[in-house]
């Protein structure tokens, strides 16, 4: 579970640390009775746990009413809390699990997950929230996918070869740039029209110009010229050609 460098903490101790940190952050102090009521235990049963935390040098606790985090304790508490938050957000925002359930599940997961797995989840989460390319609604695609939920209409995008390159569409290229079509995804009627127009995998095109306001986009392919709205152009995934 815990790796070298971090003190060995049981699940209960981690929870106590988290609680103390939250009280200290929100109120400036943490009292034994607050901790007990937050953890839903008798104040008497808090003491042994606090003593163990004090032994590990994570808190200052001298049988008084107030509990203080040591520097090491604060670091450890923040680590635990951030794991909790990321897991809660991951469960709630990505998997769309109910907020309350997500919070409870995060509590259960945060203690059991290896640092390696936690690192992976954190990175994935950061990538999706921070990467500008992910704005094309990839998460939506996941949730609307036919394979994930039979109630969803069938989506044609997933049968195409996956690519390790960032997703570019005709709409993301500027006049003067050239590209090659990788895949076309759009509502059935419009998709068929785009296909009939020759926007098929491996067809090369160049962006000639854009209309006032940047929409529609004017491209040249297969020896003829085609104008299409950005709305439609985003459905045509491409790779840029030099």
């Amino acid at each position: 579970m815990a790796t070298e460098g971090s003190p060995v903490l049981t699940r209960a101790l981690e929870d106590y640390l988290e609680t103390i940190y939250e009280f200290a952050r929100d109120h400036g102090y943490a009292r034994v009775k607050d901790i007990a009521s937050a953890r839903k235990v008798q104040p008497g049963s808090v003491s042994p746990a606090l003593k163990r935390l004090a032994d590990l040098n994570l808190i200052k606790y001298e049988r008084r009413e107030y509990v203080e985090l040591t520097e090491a304790g604060a670091i450890e508490a923040r680590r635990v809390l951030s794991r909790h938050q990321i897991l809660t957000r991951f469960l709630h925002e990505f998997l769309r699990i109910d907020a309350e359930v997500a919070d409870r599940d995060a509590c259960a997961l945060e203690h059991q997950l290896s640092d390696e797995a936690m690192d992976g989840i954190t990175k994935l989460f950061e990538f999706f929230t921070a990467c500008p390319q992910s704005k094309s609604g990839f998460l939506e695609l996941f949730h609307n996918c036919h394979l994930m939920n039979a109630a969803n209409p069938r989506c044609k995008a997933c049968t195409l070869p996956a690519s390790d390159q960032p997703k570019l569409s005709i709409a993301s290229l500027s006049p003067g740039q050239r590209g090659k079509v990788r895949n076309v995804s759009a509502r059935p009627g419009i998709r068929q029209r785009l296909l009939d127009m020759g926007l098929l995998p491996d067809v090369e095109f160049s962006v000639e110009r854009v209309a006032p306001g940047g929409d529609p986009v004017w491209i040249k392919l297969l020896g003829f010229q085609l104008a299409l709205r950005r709305e439609e152009a985003v459905g045509v995934q491409v790779e840029e050609l030099p």
């Binding site: 085609l226 709305e231 439609e232």
Partner: peptide, 12 residues
């Protein structure tokens, strides 16, 4: 209803 796409050929 679905809007008609603007996918238009520009003849020479």
């Amino acid at each position: 209803g679905e809007e008609a796409p603007f996918v238009m050929e520009l003849p020479p």
